[in-house]
Design a protein around this nucleic acid. Structure first.
Length: 477
RNA sequence: GGCGAGAUGGCCAAGUGGUAAGGCAGAAGUCUGCAAAACUUCCAUUCGCGGGUUCGAUUCCCGCUCUCGCCUCCA
């Protein structure tokens, strides 16, 4: 049995992954904010979380996977207002889109997918507790803030003390940039570090407000995750995950809210995924390097190819995404597909796999178990594929079966389905089709000169003929 | 300014105190009427630069150069 180790951002070490209590691992992922299409950077995080779950289950662990939908925050409200849509209609559209993308990427469905608007009462309840215990205060305007000074452990995840927090002005002076802050609803805080738990109603929120003991308003963004964690995984659970940017302040604030409210250690293991770079730069709309699955699909790249690229580097490293890397990934996947065809037979991998099922592919699982080293694991996979291929003919039935099973389980762990590629259905011009058919006839007649001539003509028309035993294929040149 | 990550063959990317995985691309061959695909073989005496420790360093230590990320609501 292989034991899964995962780097923990808080202790900055690999830690064994095992449930603190019982036999099920509580696993919470900060999900997408549904205000637009998710981009491949978002998906790097979700794909890695997916691989984590697949590997954990492959080693025999049970996982309770919770991934929320953030449908209530500044962005969803602003966008829905701008588009004159109800918040619900607006977010459900983008949620559907996210689900479609997730399915295309072969992400396992979380066991629970809670949304923020469905957890308003839970959030209000937490605020009440925090006020009662003296960790939060309401302002005259009807907002509630968390008093950061009241939680002495504040900053332990992000090492706040070591980071010598500077103010926005100082950063600006030193040439750094600092995000715009919406001070309009934050000026009445006792301390600049305090963060909002409840935002009093503002005109621009439109109809999106809820009643509370402090008046109409809505919960602060950080609180939703705390509330959903508490409800679906309890006061204390195993692993909390998200993009590296969430480490501070989002996760720091979650710890503060949850631990002060619940009086228990919030999370035992923090799993943060490093950001994806595109063409060696940070993704941004202004650079035009922010890709969605739809963008890449348009360029003829399947979601599985994207998934492969996202797994080609280690998740704690900045991975540089390029369009070229998609082509390389496509070729690599084709190689795996060919191998699968050569193996023949059918094995349906499933989550109830035991580590033994990997058989000759054990090194793949071992690599994944060491902090999800997907790059190393892919290397192991290809090595084994190569050596197996050479001895394929001399394998006994049992060995062949073990190979099939091990390969299938490896694919499952990576989340590759290797479904037959859907060739882009480009319309073939009738005259090209005609020429190709003539050529096929000429070939049957062994009229090689005519064959070659037609091949050239077809090529001139921008197409390439590829023969197989039973017929030909046309592809854009 | 503070904190952090990194620099490995044409590209991507692992890794280890004992002499560089894997993928892509490229080359040759088998096969094929020719192609394509597939398969086989080849492809870094070398891991940013300069020192040091060591029998031995790409891997440990020191210095330097460069790149990149984060620094309050962006996965």
């Amino acid at each position: 049995m292989s034991h899964l180790q995962l780097f923990d951002s808080q202790t900055r070490q690999n830690q064994p992954v095992k449930p603190i209590e019982g036999d099920t691992l509580g696993f919470y992922c900060c999900g997408p904010t549904v205000y637009g299409p998710a981009h491949i950077g978002n998906f790097r995080t979700f794909v890695m979380q997916d691989v984590f779950r697949r590997v954990a289950e492959s080693t025999g662990l049970k996982v309770r996977h919770v991934r929320n939908i953030t449908d209530l925050d500044d962005k969803t409200i602003r966008q829905s207002q701008e588009q004159s849509m109800s918040l619900g209609d607006f977010t459900s559209g983008w949620t559907e889109k996210f689900h479609a993308d997730a399915e295309a990427l072969n992400l396992l469905q979380p066991h629970v997918e809670p949304s923020a608007v469905e957890h308003i009462p839970e959030q209000i309840e937490m605020i009440e507790t925090l006020i009662e215990k003296g960790y939060a205060y309401a302002t005259d305007e009807g907002s509630v803030y968390f008093r950061v000074d009241s939680f002495e452990d504040y900053g332990r995840l992000s090492r706040l003390k070591e980071r010598e927090i500077t103010t926005g002005t100082e950063i600006a002076k030193s040439g750094g940039s600092v995000s715009e802050r919406e001070d309009s609803d934050e000026y009445e805080r006792d301390s600049a570090a305090d963060f909002v738990l409840w935002k009093s109603r503002k005109d621009e929120d439109g109809p999106n407000y809820w009643d509370s003991p402090w008046g109409a308003g809505r919960p602060g963004w950080h609180l939703e995750c705390s509330a959903m964690c508490k409800k679906h995984l309890g006061d204390s659970f195993d692993i909390h995950s998200g993009g590296e940017d969430l480490l501070f302040p989002h996760h720091e604030n979650e710890i503060a809210q949850s631990e002060c409210c619940n009086g228990a250690t919030f999370v035992h293991h923090w799993f943060h995924i490093t950001h994806l770079m595109v063409d060696a730069k940070k993704m941004s709309k202004s650079l035009g390097n922010l890709y969605t699955l739809a963008d890449l699909d348009e360029k003829g790249h399947s979601a599985e190819v994207v998934r492969y690229v996202l797994l080609s580097g280690s998740y704690r490293q900045q991975l540089n995404f390029t369009l070229d890397s998609l082509d390389a990934a496509g070729s690599a996947l084709r190689k795996l597909r060919d191998f699968q065809e050569k193996l023949g037979g059918e094995v349906a991998p499933n989550a109830a796999a035991s580590a033994e099922a990997f058989g000759p592919f054990q090194p793949v699982l071992d690599a994944l178990c060491l902090d999800l080293n997907t790059a190393d694991a892919l290397g192991k996979l290809f090595s084994i594929v190569k050596t197996t291929q050479k001895q394929l003919d001399s394998l006994s039935d049992d060995e062949l079966e073990a190979t099939r099973r091990g390969f299938a389980h490896s694919l499952y762990a990576f989340g590759f389905s290797l479904a037959a590629t859907d060739e882009p259905a480009t319309d073939i011009p009738a005259e090209v089709q005609e020429m190709a058919e003539q050529r096929w006839q000429a070939k049957a007649d062994k009229d090689w000169a005519k064959c070659d001539e037609l091949r050239d003509q077809i090529k001139a028309a921008g197409w390439v003929v590829k023969d197989s035993k039973d017929g030909f294929e046309l592809e854009p040149a």
